[in-house]
Simulated assay, not measured.
Amino acid sequence: MGFESAVQMGKYMKARGFDWSDEIDNYAPVGTPVEGDEEPAVDVVAEFSSDSPDMMAANVMPGSVLQRYLPILIWMDRHRDQFVALLNTGTESQAQIPRYTVPGQLTTKSVHMASSLAQLVQDFSREKNVRQRDIFEIALLEFFRRHGYAKEVEALLSL
């Protein structure tokens, strides 16, 4: 497969989120339970029955709409930090443009796009003093991160 050694292949697989599993004699995604180690799925709503301490403390009238949604709200409150981080994604300061050093040889790519978008890139480049190449690299890396290629992007940037 083009690897010089098993160690090099191991590093490649680890960078993509896989570890060697002796149980299955193959690579498995990190965090994936091995056969027999599965944890039962947690039903968020079932986790809070109407007689749980959280529900009793809420002092909510039985049968109300609030009672139906209270378990979800309690669960969301427990994971508040994760929700805040998720909601704040994309609201960073406009003046702060991320910078990446992408390893490898430079290559030329021609891309057809609407002239209005090309003008927008040119204007932004001039106004913010950012090279157009950097704009496209940043946009592609952010796109890949948000659409399921985060591990691959991190592996690329760590080369």
Rank of each mutant, 00 (worst) to 15 (best):
Ser5Leu: 03
Asp51Glu: 15
Ala57Gly: 13
Ile74Lys: 02
Glu4Lys: 15
Leu156Arg: 08
Ile135Met: 09
Tyr149Arg: 11
Ala150Phe: 00
Thr101Ser: 13
Asn26Gly: 11
Gly31Phe: 01
Arg145Tyr: 09
Glu152Pro: 06
Glu39Trp: 09
Gln119Cys: 03
Glu35His: 05
Asn129Pro: 06
Pro29Asp: 06
Asn129Met: 07
Val44Met: 12
Leu86Phe: 13
Leu156Thr: 08
Pro29Gly: 03
Val60Phe: 00
Val7Ser: 15
Leu66Glu: 15
Arg80Phe: 01
Ser93Trp: 12
Thr89Tyr: 06
Asp22His: 10
Arg16Leu: 04
Asp25Arg: 12
Gln105Ala: 14
Val60Lys: 15
Arg78Pro: 05
Ala57Gln: 12
Ala155Lys: 03
Asp123Glu: 15
Phe18Asn: 03
Glu127Thr: 11
Trp20Val: 00
Pro29Asn: 03
Pro98His: 04
Ala150Asp: 13
Tyr69Ser: 02
Ser50Phe: 12
Tyr12Ala: 10
Asp134Val: 00
Val65Glu: 13
Tyr149Cys: 06
Asp51Gly: 04
Met1Phe: 11
Val121Arg: 05
Ala150Lys: 11
Asp51Cys: 00
Val84Ile: 14
Gln105His: 06
Val34Cys: 09
Leu157Met: 08
Ala41Gln: 06
Asn59Val: 05
Val130Ser: 04
Ala118Ser: 13
Met61Gln: 14
Ser50Trp: 15
Gly31Tyr: 00
Leu140Met: 15
Tyr27Gln: 00
Ile72Arg: 14
Val34Asn: 09
Thr91Gln: 08
Lys151His: 03
Phe18Thr: 01
Arg80Cys: 11
Arg126Met: 13
Asn88Tyr: 11
Ser64Ala: 01
Tyr149Pro: 04
Arg16Gln: 11
Ile97Trp: 15
Ser93Ile: 05
His79Pro: 05
Glu23Asn: 11
Gln82Leu: 01
Met9Ala: 08
Glu154Asp: 15
Met1Leu: 04
Gln132Asn: 06
Val34Met: 14
Thr32Met: 15
Val65Met: 09
Asp123His: 11
Ala46Phe: 09
Ala46Glu: 14
Leu157Tyr: 03
Glu23Ala: 08
Thr32Lys: 13
Met55Lys: 10
Ile74Gln: 02
His147Ile: 05
Ala57Ile: 03
Glu127Asn: 11
Gln96Lys: 11
Ile135Phe: 12
Ser52Glu: 02
Arg131Pro: 10
Met1Tyr: 08
His112Lys: 14
Asn129Ile: 02
Ala28Gly: 04
Ser64Arg: 13
Tyr69Trp: 12
Ile135Asp: 00
Ile24Gly: 05
Arg16Cys: 03
His147Pro: 02
Glu38Trp: 02
Leu156Ser: 09
Leu141Thr: 06
Met1Arg: 07
Phe18Gln: 00
Gly90Asp: 10
Gly10Leu: 10
Gly31Met: 03
Gly36Phe: 01
Ala95Arg: 12
Gly17His: 08
Leu141Ser: 07
Gln132Glu: 11
Asp134Cys: 04
Ile97Glu: 01
Ala28Arg: 15
Met76Lys: 13
Gln105Thr: 13
Ile97Tyr: 11
Val121Ser: 01
Leu120Ala: 14
His79Asn: 14
Glu92His: 02
Ala155Gly: 07
Val30Ser: 05
Phe144Val: 12
